[in-house]
Design a protein around this nucleic acid. Sequence first.
DNA 1: GGTGTGACAACAA
DNA 2: TTTGTTGCCACAC
Length: 112
Amino acid sequence: MSQYCARIIQTVEAIPEGKVCSYGQIADFAGLPGRARLVGTCLRNMPNNKSIPWHRVLKSNGHIAFPKGSEGAHRQTELLQSEGVAVIRHRVDMRIYVWQPDLSEMLQKLAF
DNA sequence: GGTGTGACAACAA
DNA sequence: TTTGTTGCCACAC
């Protein structure tokens, strides 16, 4: 558990329902610009059973970060659809569901 | 301390 | 849209 991972987890937890976010955004909000890979590494290493909404994290282009047919992809798709996010052919309409955090919300949730 | 790896991003064809 | 390539950096060997 590194400090980076803690920030990443906190940022991911701040994503509201029905919204999605890209790895780059997570890294950016977490104060780690350009460390998108670290987000994935941490989420993989971190136990995903801590109520972390990892399913709201996608690639920059809206694609699901798992290979199609994978278990993770399936679970992610299910979770997203159950939240009202339309997953079309292994991808999400980032134009609609992308998370655009308000500054006040950011300060409230993160407030490093 | 070198090397390879990774749930990625951005760019180029 | 789908592939490559490159950059990035913490982490496990």
